[in-house]
Design a binder for these strands. Structure first.
Lengths: 340, 340
DNA sequence: AACGCCTCTGCAAACGTTTGCAACAGAAAA
DNA sequence: TTTTCTGTTGCAAACGTTTGCAGAGGCGTT
């Protein structure tokens, strides 16, 4: 009989539970929250009933009352190459690590893919929704100024991207310029003198990589030229093929903005019968898993994605606590394999 | 002066806005929700003020009152190979498409990575949190029974995975058994007689792929053997190397459970100087971007990820509306390239 | 016996929306 | 003029928690 009753009675609210335990809702709330000011026996009883009925306090109500939700928003702004980035290996890996780190800290993760062109108001909307305690933005895309604007009035925000001199928002990211230098140095050390940069220089991360390569080329007396290329594999492969055809024989080194692009370059080069690294040297960026699996394996500039994710979450936590924090610039690392 | 006042006054709640507009909070709520029973002029005025102050109604409060949140939970249960799956290309691509589809339907996405071993209660916790209107589970992993249990009492759930005869939860996925058959047929058509299945047969998706291949092998009088291999690239490459060494010369066809594994097989085969497809034929699964970029490009069984994501969201919407729905089994498609 | 203190519990007011119901004004119908 | 209707608005009660405050006992001290 008691069995029947207990299994039948649905315990949805803290009040239901309170009735069953013969105490007031307030006490139940305190017991489940682990506050010290509730009697050990009472707590046990309440916890037992809660367990038995699989009761979970409603997070919406709790969030509303406490004015915090336990959710961190993660926004992925999609630039021009809309379709590409959301499944981009680099961003997805970063997202995976972010999920890990946030879970570890007891936060949930609300993912939002945004197209700034269609919705200029995306960041305010996200923040103003009241659903999230803080926000992580994956990639500045072309939204630098908007992010700067918001950063002035909203502390708990951390952005993955490139660090600009004197910027006001908190950013975590690799030193792209340095990475670009490393790539160019390697290419030149391997014998390249006429270098092509394959990628899109509009996003500032890539612009910085190119700039770094330019620094070195200039210093060492090598040529460098940017070959504008979309980042989505479907569009990129044709473009790369065209670039190579146009530059026929006038290039002896390629710095690809991304390992994904580097892999495409590799196939395009093979199609044209160009030997790598003998005729053309190739360096990628990111050190994605694919870099190990191409033939030949890619020399590339590694970004420490796990460290980046950890850094972002730690900084965000400090900002949630009200602290102003510096940005975090991670050192890239040259990984030499066989493509140059 | 009026400028000063308006810019200074922070409009956080619907009540603030009501005061400014000289109406009651109820009216503001109705105006912003686009209900018909509010005067056109009043609405305009309210909307203007809202726009001017960048006001967004608090979603938590709204969710609490309406008993719906506009958020769909997406859970990724991590099985034994904990670290691997969250950054697994296939799942991440699926997640990307899910984000697209859900956004399109006006839902937000709450991502939760769960480790069922540490937290047996994961699914109830997620559902009972009150934060989500419905849930999508990406991959059954080894949680089939738990999911079945929950499915009886909770309608708005859709799972990506394999369809079992007579199961009760709504699942969307590729016909893995058929896919396995296609792969084996191709291998045998290309001349293979002694086939190895590289992958882990514990997750039911993979078990089904293997079973399909077995069907065909048996029918056509070919041998087939499973070589248990972890799915994470770091552990898999050694294991594959060992498998190949052990099976030296006794294998003339490989069916890899995943394109990622197939790519690793390819490097391992090359390391041993084994010609693909001449000596050993190779077929992968998924048709990830990498399948196009290996040398030789992979023959593989394509899963239509975009269609899968769309299907899951559409089914979930119908279930949110209270409808019982069937599962959706998608046809795989053999993509013939050069590895067999 | 009176008092103070300490531990635990209950009460009720928030948190910011939504929404059923009632009220009101003005217009049209009687 | 009174009545009825229609189109708008306000009022106030939810939604399910959390938490400041006060009260109720119990126990030790003076």
């Amino acid at each position: 009989m008691s069995d029947e009753r207990t299994t039948r009675t649905a315990v949805r609210t803290i009040t239901d539970l309170a009735r069953l335990a013969g105490v007031s809702p307030g006490t139940v709330s305190r017991a489940l929250a682990g506050k010290s000011l509730v009697n050990a026996k009472t707590r046990e009883k309440i916890e037992a009933i809660a367990r038995e009925h699989g009761f979970r306090p409603n997070q919406m109500a709790s969030g509303l009352r406490r004015q915090k939700t336990g959710v961190i928003g993660v926004a992925i702004p999609l630039g021009h190459d809309v379709r590409q980035q959301i499944s981009d290996t680099f961003f997805m890996t970063l997202l995976g690590h972010l999920a890990d780190e946030l879970t570890l800290e007891g936060y949930d993760l609300m993912l939002r893919r945004v197209v700034p062109e269609d919705d200029p108001d995306w960041l305010d909307r996200f923040i103003g929704s009241g659903m999230i305690d803080g926000v992580i933005v994956i990639g500045q895309s072309d939204q630098f100024v908007r992010i700067e604007d918001v950063a002035d009035g909203y502390l708990p925000m951390v952005v993955w991207g490139n660090h600009q001199q004197g910027q006001r928002h908190c950013v975590v990211g690799t030193d792209n310029r340095l990475g670009g230098r490393m790539a160019a140095e390697r290419l030149i050390a391997a014998g390249a003198r006429r270098i092509a940069f394959v990628g899109d220089t509009t996003p500032i991360e890539f612009a910085a990589r190119f700039a770094g390569a330019e620094d070195v080329a200039q210093r060492m007396g090598a040529d460098i030229v940017a070959l504008p290329t979309h980042l989505s594999p479907d569009r990129a492969s044709d473009e790369i093929a065209r670039h190579l055809a146009a530059a026929d024989g006038r290039i002896d080194g390629i710095f690809a903005a991304t390992d994904t692009l580097a892999a495409l370059c590799l196939t395009a080069l093979r199609d044209r019968g160009i030997a790598v690294p003998d005729t053309v040297r190739l360096v990628g960026f990111d050190d994605l898993p694919i870099a190990r699996q191409t033939v030949p394996p890619l020399t590339t500039v590694r970004q420490d994605i796990a460290a980046g994710a950890r850094g972002m979450v730690q900084l965000l936590l400090r900002r949630l606590a009200g602290e102003e924090t510096e940005s975090l610039v991670l050192p890239p690392q040259l990984v030499i394999r066989q493509s140059s």
